[in-house]
Design a protein around this nucleic acid. Structure first.
Lengths: 238, 238
DNA sequence: ACCTGAACACCGTTCAAGT
DNA sequence: ACCTGAACACCGTTCAAGT
């Protein structure tokens, strides 16, 4: 994969024979315009391939066949690129419909799946995420919970709680994505069975079914939530 | 705060008058030995002051009055320093005692408080955390849950679920720590009330009591958990 | 065993200059 | 309006060399 000189492939060389050929070419600006969308899409590719460490303004520019400073006309800083990349992948999360508990489950599961497809993303949620895709899904989540009867502080606790639960889950799971990391971690634990009897007895970092584990935890949470609807000091005043 | 030349303050200059003074000084190696502990403690200081971006091997070396390459005798890579720093702050989390639900609540709340005191830490949990302090607290958490009657997949779901919930919560809360970030975010939302009616109506990113919000969510989760003890396919076989 | 100077191969970003 | 070359002020890390 050559990163340079793929500028549309016709600028001089063997294509120069036809007279008047200029008019047959679209104007360059249309052909390979450097748009924000292209920048973000390429950034996501780079992140998927090599993680956060792999995204470099210089590498990004190279992949786009452009000089590094050019990026700064379209973007203010590298952090901008990261923020845009995060919002971009949220477009992959379908917004569901149906009864609240199913819809919430569906949204949350798809949300998690998307983050796991892009393992670089969970830590990046430690930055303000206010892109349209993120907000649209948050709006839906809170809307579903509100329609379920949550109000006030209960609603806020449910919304943030669910979001935090997915994010935290994706963060730790993406940590243990590689089997070898899990393997050495387990060995480390087993070698210290005296210090960590419970963890070892229950094979804490086993190569388990993380999906099922998450769904189980989610269901516990939803159950606790459903039980809390309408109770408490906020939504049921005297 | 001068970062250089604080090597014990007596090497030349006004202290050279006393004859035989060499013998009164402790050997240099004892006085300001560069230990792993000092490196990690200084790293935590740097992280607390300026965040992850503020921790640089060169700045760290400077603060320790040492040449940058020296650090690489004590540490293999910068990531080592980060991993050690994360484990170091977990020492601040007291390991509680008492009935399981209270103990779990206590641990989880202290855990969260510590992360919020060191806002750089939540994103770093996206790396394998196997230090003794982290493991000791995880062992305690799982032990408390096991003593409460959780077994098998329920136990794993409870342990990971709680950990993920705290981590996720600390991650997002540390994002919105600064009032100005919250302020502009709210303004951004309010300006788009048509797109995000629920979020705006419920003042999603209000400057709320995050502690109370977290405890509410935690209680929902614990309620859901307590209800799940002993049920399900794993812990109650036919 | 512990520490250093010099150097390598990178970074993000600015800025005057080009078209 | 959009792109570039050259440069600035940094990085993490290696390595031969010092004590």
């Amino acid at each position: 994969m050559d990163a340079k000189g793929n500028r549309a492939g016709g600028r001089g060389g063997r294509s120069g024979g036809v007279p008047g050929e200029v008019w047959l070419r679209e104007p360059r600006a249309r052909r390979d315009a450097l748009t924000l969308d292209r920048i973000v899409a390429t950034a996501v590719d780079l992140l998927d391939a090599d993680g956060v460490a792999g995204l470099t303004m210089r590498r990004l520019a190279d992949r786009l066949a452009v000089a590094p400073p050019t990026l700064y006309w379209h973007v203010k800083t590298k952090d901008d690129v990261l923020d845009l990349a995060v919002d971009a992948i949220f477009a992959e999360v379908p917004v569901p419909s149906g009864p609240w508990r199913d819809a919430v489950r569906e949204l949350v599961l798809a949300w998690r799946a998307t983050m796991l497809r892009h393992p670089w993303s969970p830590p990046l949620l430690g930055r303000p995420a206010l892109g349209p895709n993120v907000l649209e899904r948050t709006e839906f989540l809170q809307g579903a919970l509100a329609s379920a009867g949550f109000t006030g502080a209960h609603l806020a606790a449910a919304t943030h709680g669910l979001a935090n639960f997915v994010i935290g889950s994706a963060l730790t799971q993406s940590t243990w994505h590689s089997p070898e990391a899990l393997g050495t971690a387990r060995a480390h634990l087993r070698a210290r069975a005296d210090d960590y009897p419970t963890l070892v007895a229950n094979d804490h970092l086993a190569d388990q079914d993380w999906d099922a584990l998450f769904e189980r935890g989610l269901d516990h949470f939803l159950t606790g939530l459903a039980q809390g609807i309408g109770s408490g000091p906020v939504s049921s005043p005297p």
